[in-house]
């Protein structure tokens, strides 16, 4: 399976996710939206598995390949949030964001080949990147909630419940970011001789991490304002975007040992 067949899998997945998200607004039971979302995820994961086999390496090296995982994990994060917190709008938000990344991959695919440089040939490679992509998706969902809050602030009835959900997403997200970062540190010791090299990607990863820590610690304050918390979340997500791909456009990326997209 190659990128040429991606569009077909993507269309089927997006249709399934979209109908699941639409059903979430009308259906009384959570079963059908959940089943449709899961069906979409299965179709999408068949493509990832096929690509993995045809590339003979984990499809995690290029930006396009990380976008692929992100598009996959967003509906996962949306589904978990939907099942746990009953917000019917979250599935449509994650579906739309996932579709954006799918479109980017269709319009502007990277050069994909089988080569995997020696530094990436490690058992740490897959868990390090996958857990990061999963955390980016969860924190993406948290950002969607923050935007939703800031846009509709006056119309939200149960703010406490929404804040509780946001906290849950951020805790899960930062737990995964921490796991990804520390796995990266252990791997870096094995691959590059040191667990922390102040590589631009590492520095921005630390900035992102601190951004979400700020949110968590600010929320623990008794007098914290919900609005400020949500703004903090959006700033942290901007840091996350710089860390993920923005850093490639910064001059410091010229020396980065984290750029692998030829």
């Amino acid at each position: 399976m190659t990128w040429d067949s991606f569009i077909y899998f993507a269309i089927i997945s997006v249709l399934l996710w979209g109908s699941g998200a639409a059903l979430a607004y009308v259906s009384k039971h959570k079963r059908w939206p959940a089943l449709l979302t899961v069906a979409g995820l299965i179709v999408f994961s068949i493509f990832i598995a096929g690509l993995w086999i045809s590339l003979e390496r984990p499809p995690l090296r290029t930006m396009g390949e990380t976008r692929l995982w992100y598009s996959f994990f967003l509906p996962v994060a949306g589904l978990l949030t939907y099942l746990r917190w009953n917000y019917k709008w979250i599935l449509s938000f994650t579906t739309i964001l996932s579709t954006v990344f799918i479109i980017v991959n269709i319009v502007k695919p990277d050069i994909h080949n089988k080569a995997l440089m020696p530094a990436l040939q490690s058992p740490w490679f897959a868990p390090h990147v996958i857990i990061y992509m999963f955390s980016y998706a969860i924190l993406g969902a948290a950002t969607l909630v923050a935007i939703y809050y800031l846009v509709r602030e006056k119309k939200i009835n149960n703010k406490a419940k929404l804040m509780e959900m946001t906290d849950s997403l951020v805790y899960a997200g930062i737990a995964c970011i921490t796991l990804g970062m520390l796995m990266g540190a252990i791997w870096a010791k094995v691959a590059w001789g040191h667990y922390w090299s102040w590589d631009p990607k590492e520095t921005w990863a630390a900035a992102t991490w601190i951004g979400y820590l700020l949110y968590i610690h600010y929320r623990l304050k008794k007098s914290s304002s919900d609005k400020t918390s949500m703004i903090l979340l959006i700033i942290a997500f901007i840091l996350l975007q710089i860390c993920w791909y923005g850093v490639n456009y910064l001059p410091s990326a010229q020396q980065s040992i984290h750029t692998y997209s030829s």
């Binding site: 509780e164 849950s168 805790y171 899960a172 737990a175 995964c176 921490t178």
Partner: peptide, 11 residues
């Protein structure tokens, strides 16, 4: 271990 704790226990 602390990250796993955060993930499981939540806020």
């Amino acid at each position: 271990a602390g990250a796993l704790f955060l993930f499981i226990a939540g806020p």
